[in-house]
Design a protein around this nucleic acid. Structure first.
Lengths: 133, 133
DNA sequence: TCGTTATTTCGCCAACAAGCGAAGTATCGG
DNA sequence: CCGATACTTCGCTTGTTGGCGAAATAACGA
């Protein structure tokens, strides 16, 4: 039952839930999650490690940046079911809705100065479009 | 998102998960859960209050006894989905399997001396049969 | 009414979790 | 190399949680 316990505990903290839901439609690098949540980098790093250990999220390192993404369909069935539960029950949550809006701004702004200098304008535009959906 | 947080936190403790899974097929009174978990009555009472507050469980008082039961189909959709997730991911869990076996013994023994003096032998037999399934 | 039994509430302690800042690791740009 | 940038790990503080036993509440049975 350790898998269920890890997943349940990972989803038991509001900031982790916010970070996890922000990854519903796209991957994000740590600095974008830090800006979204407004927490210290070390805190966000710890939160992401918890989500990762639970199998809800994985990460890919590209240069200086670590990109996090939801494991989604690649997750094992038990975790996949939890992901569907979380996404569905928070679809209309006010906090998550606010976060979605703020993400649009973050995705528009941070590319120029930070995380994805290697991301082409066209990719950036589609990421923003995805965030609006 | 408070509902999800309450449910996730409720399912984040192994003893609460065991108690909750024990209620999958039948209702149980507090003393049976106390015996199953081997914890102090006050501790079990607190655990059940957490499960109840999360909407995973409700209770019905009958005389001296409080019978707990899974809210199951009566739960709101978000909670119902979590219930299905928990039940499905723990169907073959070793600890839960051990608990199911011990429950058979508890259901056979406790009626005579404790909780369900008001339960007729035929009902008791069917409860035991359900526990074996 | 009085004692007994079932359960909850209260008060406490130890373990854990979330937060931060400082120091450490890794990668890029010069 | 050296500084800067992006994270992560470490050490610490503070709030929360899980456990217990003792006392309180409730209901039954004599």
């Amino acid at each position: 039952m350790n898998e269920l316990l890890r997943v349940a505990r990972a989803l038991g903290d509001p900031n982790r839930v916010r970070a996890f839901l922000a990854l519903e439609k796209r991957e994000l690098c740590a600095c974008q999650l830090i800006e979204l949540l407004g927490l210290a980098p070390s805190t966000v790093s710890k939160h992401m490690a918890v989500l990762k250990h639970a199998g809800l999220v994985d990460s890919r390192k590209s240069g200086r940046w670590v990109h996090y993404r939801c494991t989604g369909k690649r997750a094992v069935p038990a975790v996949r079911e939890a992901i569907a539960w979380a996404h569905r029950s928070l679809r209309h949550d006010p906090q998550i809705t606010r976060d979605r809006r703020r993400l649009v701004a973050i995705l528009l702004r941070t590319p120029a100065e930070a995380c994805d200098t290697d991301r082409s304008p066209v990719t950036r535009r589609s990421a923003v479009a995805a965030a609006r959906r």
